[in-house]
Design a protein around this nucleic acid. Structure first.
Lengths: 236, 236
DNA sequence: GAGTGGTCTAGACCACCAT
DNA sequence: TGGTGGTCTAGACCACTCG
């Protein structure tokens, strides 16, 4: 047996959903019917269906049947994503302006966040990021200099995540972040060209590579009228 | 049969992991051994183990055995969590007050979010949630009535997630959520006892069970001075 | 070769749902 | 009441891993 039977069943049902032969909310054949259609045991059918439920294609109703799930949740809005990737996914034109770019002696807190030793430096960047020329985000980044010795201000006008993955060959793995609502500081209101009465979303993120090293500690200030943070999360 | 056999097995293994009787990387008894230990069939053992694998407690190696997974990333900052679990993790005393509890004809939008058919009803709940007696969160929930026919207002004074998992035997799987900053509406300011000039964090969440069905659509309004949303996210 | 997990069968009883 | 999915049994053969 090369391909397991349950996978064949899975693929056929998946194909029928993708080709719209089966639409959202449609009742699919019962487990007993599928047993006869594919000439397999019920447990095999159940394995196929359970996998499709886990993948978000179907949902079950005890006593009623199994149905095609509405809109499969976009995998694209999952987990850790750079701003560029996110905005382009929404069809917006992204641009950035670097306001500050310098190397500094990090504070104790930053050293901890970036796993830096006593004498190691951090790159400090401030930049404004635009979607369709509208300022959406002001961010302050701390980056370990020893990971990015040749990083320039020009690089930061583009996507940092792309730079990391394409230029340096690193792989972004995960992040720890906190999200809160605030009133903007004067500086932030000015940068984002907003009224001081409009709240902002403040996201503080520590992002890691797949080698376990943190490569950025970022404080982001988002315009609340232009940005909602959307994501897909699993139960731990 | 009240509690399924596979869930009993699951719980015992989970308990052994949490109490450190089983450590990271430990080999657990083989499926055949568990069959004898619990005096059940192998398929039942497999169902228990597969659930634990899906939940990240174990991993399998064909031909070698089943092992305890490396320590799960801090439970406290991961993915989908109920408010109760989260607050208790911070050492706070949680309480809730149900403000409204009624059954209603859902709007088209809510029907879509909860996968409801034309004639199916939704339970509508408003509640205020406290940490150490301080109001922190006001939430509006829509819950499919057909999943929770016997749900009472009293149940909602406690943890809904615990009710779902312990009382009903369902399993919370994942959620899709959006997070944004806002100024509070008068009603929200009143409920949370805050000044109208203090921003709030608005989280809209659609949460799913492992049978693929959504069990809640929630709009949460958090006091920004009392709450930061902290989490751990993986690169998709 | 002995043991492991992966796949699969052909039954069974149950709780739930619609009619 | 008849059909659905949820749980469970007691077998079986396979591919993989390790000694």
């Amino acid at each position: 047996m090369q391909i397991p039977l349950y996978q064949i069943i899975e693929n056929e049902i998946k194909e029928q959903i993708q080709s719209k032969k089966l639409k959202e909310g449609d009742l699919i054949p019962s487990e007993n019917q599928l047993t006869e259609i594919y000439n397999v045991s019920r447990m095999t059918v159940r394995q196929a269906l359970n996998n499709l439920v886990n993948d978000g294609y179907l949902y079950k109703h005890k006593g009623r049947g199994t149905f095609v799930a509405p809109r499969k949740i976009e995998k694209s809005i999952q987990g850790v994503r750079g701003f560029t990737e996110e905005m382009e996914g929404l069809g917006k034109v992204v641009s950035s302006k670097v306001v500050k770019f310098l190397v500094l002696e990090p504070s104790e807190e930053i050293r901890e966040k970036l796993f830096l030793k006593e004498d190691e430096k951090a790159i400090y960047v401030e930049r404004i990021r635009y979607g369709d020329k509208m300022p959406i985000l002001f961010e302050t980044l701390y980056i370990p200099q020893n990971l990015f010795k040749d990083l320039t201000a020009a690089d930061m006008e583009e996507s940092f995540y792309t730079y990391i993955e394409k230029e340096k060959g690193y792989r972004v793995s995960h992040c720890v972040q906190s999200i809160e609502a605030q009133m903007p500081k004067s500086k932030h209101a000015e940068m984002l060209k907003i009224n001081k009465n409009m709240p902002v979303l403040k996201i503080i993120r520590n992002t890691f590579l797949n080698n376990g090293r943190p490569f950025e500690y970022v404080i982001s200030i988002y315009r609340s009228d232009q940005y909602r943070f959307v994501q897909y999360a699993f139960k731990g």
